[in-house]
C-alpha cells in the first residue's frame, strides 16, 4: 500500500456562537494516500468545508476552533503546527481550490499578478521568470492565449476559465495534496466535466493526491478512488467508490444514491431524501439521521450508532451493521431488535 499523505484522526472542530457550541466536525477520521483521489460527499451543512478548512488551519477564529484530534500530514500534526510553519505548507505542500471561481480571485489584480504572487511566496524567483512560469502554468491547465490572459482581470474570464486559473495557482508549487472544495458546483455540466478531466490528468501526471469535496455523488463516481460520506459533522460510511455505489450500507448513503439522476430512466421524477441536515449540537441523542431514515427503529432514537468497521477501509455508522453483516436487511425486515 502506498504512503499516506493525509491522516485525519478524531477531528473535532467546533464553533462557539451566541446560540451555543456547534460541533460542526464531530470526530471525523479519514485519510488520503499518495496519488489517490478521495471524495468527501454529503449534503450541504454536513461539515465538509469545515473539515477541509481545518486541514489548512483556516477555520475563522473566533468563532471556530479545532477542539481536539490530529491532522497528520507527511508525519507532522498540522493541529500542533505553528502559523509560521503552516504558511510554508499552505499553497506549497497543500493547495486548495474553492467552490466559487467568481469570487475566489481578487477582482482588482490581474491573473498574472495573483499567479506570480503564488509562485513567489514559496520560490525565490525573479518577476520575469515567475511570469514565464505563470504563462506555462496557464497553458498547462488548458487556457488558450495564456500570454494575453495573464494580463487580464478575473471579470474578463468565464467561470470555467477562472476555475482553471485557480487550479493553475494551486499547481504552482507542485503540492503533495490538493484539496478541492466543491470545485465544479458553480459550473455548468460540460465545463464541470472538463474541470474534472483536468484534475484527473494532473493527479495522474504529477501523482498528486486529491481530497475532493462535493455534495454530488455524480462527481464522485466520475473521478474518485474512495469515498467518505459525511452527515451532520460525522463520517457515516466509507469505502471504495465501487463499493459505495454498488453496495451502500448506511441508509443515508442509499438515499444519496437513490437521488442520483438515472440516465436510463428518463423523465422519472427525481428522488430526494425528505427533510434537511440537522444543525449539529453538543448533546445529540440517537442516530443523527434517524428523523429522516426509513429504516429507523427504537434504538436509533435512544443511542448513537458508532462507526462499525465492516471490511478493509470499509465503515458504516448504522446499527444495522452491528453484526458486521454484508447485506442490510431488506425493506420489510426493517425492524431488527437490538
Amino acid at each position: 500500500m502506498s504512503k499516506r499523505v493525509l491522516d485525519i484522526n478524531e477531528l473535532h472542530t467546533h464553533f462557539f456562537t451566541d446560540k451555543g457550541e456547534i460541533p460542526a466536525v464531530d470526530g471525523v477520521s479519514l485519510n488520503v494516500s499518495e496519488g489517490e483521489i478521495v471524495g468527501v460527499v454529503g449534503e450541504s451543512g454536513s461539515g465538509k468545508s469545515v473539515t477541509s478548512l481545518s486541514v489548512m488551519q483556516l477555520i475563522p477564529n473566533p468563532p471556530g476552533k479545532i477542539v481536539s484530534g490530529e491532522i497528520m500530514f507527511k508525519g507532522r500534526d498540522l493541529v500542533q503546527t505553528s502559523l509560521k510553519q503552516m504558511k510554508k505548507i499552505r499553497g506549497n505542500e497543500i493547495a486548495m481550490i474553492f467552490q466559487e471561481p467568481m469570487t475566489s480571485l481578487n477582482p482588482l489584480f490581474t491573473i498574472g499578478n495573483q499567479l506570480i504572487e503564488a509562485i513567489r511566496i514559496h520560490n525565490k524567483m525573479g518577476k520575469g521568470e515567475a511570469r514565464q512560469k505563470a504563462v506555462e502554468l496557464l497553458e498547462q491547465v488548458g487556457i488558450p492565449r495564456a500570454n494575453d490572459i495573464v494580463d487580464e482581470y478575473p471579470h474578463q474570464l468565464s467561470g470555467g476559465m477562472r476555475q482553471r486559473v485557480m487550479i493553475a495557482m494551486a499547481m504552482s508549487c507542485r503540492p503533495d495534496l490538493l484539496i478541492a472544495d466543491e470545485p465544479t458546483t458553480a459550473l455548468d455540466v460540460t465545463i464541470q466535466a472538463q474541470i474534472l478531466d483536468l484534475m484527473r490528468q494532473l493527479n495522474r501526471d504529477l501523482n498528486m493526491a486529491i481530497l475532493l469535496i462535493t455534495h454530488d455523488l455524480g462527481v464522485i463516481a466520475e473521478i474518485c478512488d474512495r469515498v467518505v460520506v459525511m452527515y451532520a459533522g460525522q463520517v457515516v460510511e466509507e469505502g471504495t467508490t465501487r463499493e459505495i455505489l454498488k453496495d451502500p450500507q448506511q441508509p443515508y448513503t442509499k438515499g444519496l444514491i437513490r437521488s442520483l439522476p438515472d440516465m436510463k430512466a428518463k423523465n422519472q421524477k427525481l428522488y430526494s431524501i425528505p427533510g434537511t441536515v440537522p444543525k449539529p449540537k453538543v448533546d445529540m441523542v440517537g442516530c443523527r439521521f434517524a428523523p429522516r431514515c426509513e429504516y429507523a427503529f427504537d434504538r436509533c432514537f435512544a443511542e448513537s450508532p458508532p462507526l462499525y468497521h465492516i471490511g478493509d477501509n470499509r465503515t458504516s455508522r448504522c446499527f444495522l451493521n452491528e453484526r458486521d453483516q454484508r447485506e442490510v436487511a431488506s425493506h420489510d425486515e426493517t425492524v431488527i431488535k437490538g
Partner: peptide, 16 residues
C-alpha cells in the same frame, strides 16, 4: 471574502 481566503490558502503573510 473568498479571495482573501484564497490568498491565505496560498500561504501569504498577514502583511500581503
Amino acid at each position: 471574502s473568498d479571495y482573501i481566503r484564497t490568498v491565505e490558502a496560498k500561504g501569504a503573510g498577514q502583511f500581503i
